[in-house]
Amino acid sequence: SHCAGCKEEIKHGQSLLALDKQWHVSCFKCQTCSVILTGEYISKDGVPYCESDYHAQF
């Protein structure tokens, strides 16, 4: 499978399933500020955001 963030193949190591896609753990980050999302996040149109950036933009 391929990472939804960087589009590279996910080989051995940690990956996560979010928004119905596979991601490298380090690629699942806020679209705006690039903080790596480990806990709470909000998505809009399949794109992840941290809570503060989501509320600031939408």
Rank of each mutant, 00 (worst) to 15 (best):
S43H: 05
T32S: 10
Y41T: 06
S43G: 12
Y49M: 09
L19C: 11
L17Q: 12
C30N: 00
K11T: 12
S1C: 03
Q14T: 10
I42Q: 14
E51Y: 14
C33P: 02
G5D: 09
C30T: 01
D45M: 05
H12S: 14
E40C: 09
E9I: 06
I10R: 02
L37Q: 02
C33Y: 00
S52H: 06
Q57V: 14
C27L: 01
S52N: 15
T38Q: 15
S26F: 12
Y54C: 14
S43K: 07
W23D: 03
A18H: 07
D20K: 10
G5P: 01
Y54R: 09
E40H: 11
K7R: 10
T38L: 05
S34E: 13
Q57C: 08
A18M: 10
Q31P: 15
C3T: 01
Q31H: 13
H2Q: 09
E40R: 08
I10V: 12
S43T: 09
D53S: 04
V47I: 13
E9G: 11
E51P: 12
H12Q: 12
Q22P: 13
L37Y: 00
G46D: 05
C27P: 02
S1P: 05
S52M: 04
Q22L: 08
I42K: 15
L16E: 08
I10H: 02
L19I: 11
I10S: 04
Y49N: 02
A18L: 07
A18K: 15
K44Q: 13
Y49H: 09
I42G: 14
L16N: 10
F28L: 08
S52Y: 06
H12A: 13
C30H: 00
W23V: 04
Y49F: 05
Y54N: 08
Y54G: 11
Q22V: 10
K44G: 07
F58D: 15
H24L: 00
C30E: 03
K44Y: 06
W23Q: 01
S43C: 10
K11G: 11
H2P: 08
K29N: 07
D45L: 05
C30Q: 04
T32F: 02
C30V: 00
S15M: 11
C50K: 03
E51A: 09
G5F: 05
L19N: 07
K44N: 07
G39M: 05
Y49S: 03
L16T: 12
S34T: 05
F28S: 01
V25L: 11
A4M: 11
C3I: 01
H12K: 13
A18W: 03
Q57K: 05
H24R: 01
H55Y: 08
T38A: 12
C6M: 02
G46V: 02
C3M: 01
P48R: 02
F28H: 04
V25N: 06
C50Y: 02
A56D: 12
L17K: 07
G5M: 14
E8I: 09
G46N: 03
D45H: 08
K11M: 14
K11C: 12
T32Y: 05
S15Y: 05
S34R: 15
F28A: 03
